[in-house]
């Protein structure tokens, strides 16, 4: 197996764990997500524990992994290059939060919930790709 194939296989396994984690944790449950975002209603803070669980693992591990000179199957780490907090970051995050609130789905859970067979998920994903495409065209 060449290194591109090793990366792809790793990525498939990682995707399986990621999708399963999202489904088990409750992130694909739109009612739970919208109740998580609703401190004035029947506030369900369970989903805060998803982030706590994820960061409890990722925070210390990222620290050690990023001390390495390179990843196992590639020549370098592909890290985001932007460092400045700018208007694009803030406006993007605001619009993203608004969209997340409207349906209760963010991009990862959209894919992880595809197998549930709801047409609403398909509409959401299609609109999401259109939104990303329009955004990229405007940025170019």
């Amino acid at each position: 197996m060449n290194s591109a194939q090793k990366v792809s296989l790793t990525s498939l396994i990682v995707g399986l764990m990621f999708g399963a984690g999202l489904a088990i944790s409750g992130m694909t449950d739109v009612t739970k997500v919208q109740n998580f975002l609703d401190p004035l209603g029947n506030w369900d803070i369970t989903l805060a524990f998803v982030m706590i669980g994820a960061l409890a693992v990722a925070l210390p591990c990222f620290h050690f992994v990023l001390k390495k000179s390179k990843p196992k199957y590639d020549d370098k780490f592909h890290m985001p290059s932007a460092t400045k907090v700018d208007k694009k970051l803030l406006i993007g995050a605001m619009l993203f939060g608004a969209g997340w609130a409207m349906v209760g789905i963010c991009p990862g859970p959209a894919f992880a919930s595809l197998s549930y067979g709801y047409w609403q998920t398909l509409v959401f994903i299609a609109a999401m790709f259109v939104g990303a495409h329009v955004s990229r065209k405007l940025l170019d």
């Binding site: 790793t10 990525s11 764990m17 990621f18 984690g21 994820a54 992994v65 990843p71 199957y73 592909h78």
Partner: peptide, 24 residues
């Protein structure tokens, strides 16, 4: 479930970074 699922998401991100050098 939230903690376990979250930990699984965390592990997946660590594996992708360690082996592929990519952000999940």
């Amino acid at each position: 479930e939230a903690l376990f699922g979250g930990a699984l998401i965390g592990v997946s991100a660590v594996i992708l970074l360690l082996f592929a050098g990519r952000i999940a």
